[in-house]
Amino acid sequence: MRNLFAFIYRFRAFLVFLLLEALSVFLIVRYNTYQGAAFFNSANRYVGQVLEFQSGITDYFRLTGINQALATENAALRQELMQYRQLTLTDSTASLDTTYYTSSDTSRAYPYHLQAGRVINNSVRRMNNYLTISKGTADGVQPGMGVIAPSGVVGRVKTVSEHYATITSLLHSQMLISAKLVKDNTFGTIKWQGGDYRTALLDYIPLHVKPEKGDTIVTSGFNTVFPEGIMVGTISSIEQEPDKSFYTIGVKLSVDFAQLSYVYVVENMYKVERDTLEQNAGIITDEQ
């Protein structure tokens, strides 16, 4: 305390000057309109900058939660879009007026449900590539479910724990995707041959078909894993080999697997019923 009083006494002239200076500024701002407006405008600007900086720091630490909320919302919106497309594909000649159908009409019910999941591990340089997402059995994820991204097909769920799931990537030597040409519905099989993670092959397109570079490839819907019409890619090259009855078609994949952050797990509510029926009928297919 003695040191404090000594300090005040030593700098008493300077402290009195500061006090009088502050009082003068207050009186000028308080009783002069122009100076008051200028002061408060400047003060508001600096306070706003400080608050903006503070908000930026707070938002940075909330990005994970914000991204998850946005991914969940996007999953719901994408599911509605896919449902609308399905209605268009299955009933292109009838009116889409929903007043003719109710939510309990199972013949019109959309069987696919999407759930967003964050990618926490990924590979693209191997011959057999996998992803890991932060969704598991606690979230309803089961082996065999399809996985898509906002830009197209990603793969299929392989193994699941309570909170995590591994995904067999489309970039896997054993992964086959049933796909079709949009322009004429000719279907074939997408398979990755290794190497460039941005390209794959479309097999079994017969020679009487006339594919062209730039043609769009989507899922065929001939399975219980992926809905019909999910983007796969576009034709980048076409070769007709003399000893083959099918084209060799290169496809530029729509998904950039090196940039995946969030994906959507696709649950088909009728998968078990259909798979059981086809197995009992002896129908076996390796395409997904």
Rank of each mutant, 00 (worst) to 15 (best):
M1Q: 01
R2P: 00
R2Q: 07
L4G: 00
I8P: 00
Y9C: 03
R12I: 12
F14S: 14
V16C: 10
V16Q: 04
L18D: 00
L20M: 12
A22W: 02
L23S: 13
V25Y: 07
F26D: 08
F26I: 13
T33H: 09
T33K: 08
Y34D: 01
S42D: 15
A43V: 10
N44I: 13
V47M: 10
G48K: 00
G48W: 02
V50E: 04
V50M: 07
F53R: 11
T58C: 07
D59I: 08
F61S: 10
R62C: 00
I66R: 11
N67I: 02
Q68V: 11
T72I: 08
R78I: 07
E80P: 00
E80F: 09
M82A: 13
Y84L: 13
Q86C: 09
Q86L: 09
L87H: 10
T90C: 04
D91N: 08
A94N: 11
D97E: 07
Y101L: 06
Y110I: 03
Y110S: 07
A116D: 01
R118T: 02
N121W: 14
S123P: 01
V124L: 03
R125G: 07
R126M: 06
M127Y: 11
L131Q: 03
K135S: 12
K135D: 02
T137N: 09
T137K: 06
D139Q: 15
V141M: 10
P143H: 04
G144P: 04
G152E: 05
G152M: 04
V157N: 01
K158R: 09
S161C: 08
H163K: 12
Y164T: 15
A165C: 08
I167C: 03
I177T: 15
L181A: 02
L181K: 07
V182Q: 06
W192Y: 14
Q193V: 10
R198A: 14
L202S: 03
Y204Q: 09
V209L: 03
V209T: 10
V218N: 02
T219W: 07
F222S: 15
G229F: 08
I230F: 09
M231P: 00
V232R: 06
G233L: 03
S245E: 12
T248S: 11
I249R: 03
Y262L: 01
V265M: 04
E267C: 05
E278A: 01
Q279Y: 09
N280G: 08
A281K: 12
I284F: 14
E287V: 13
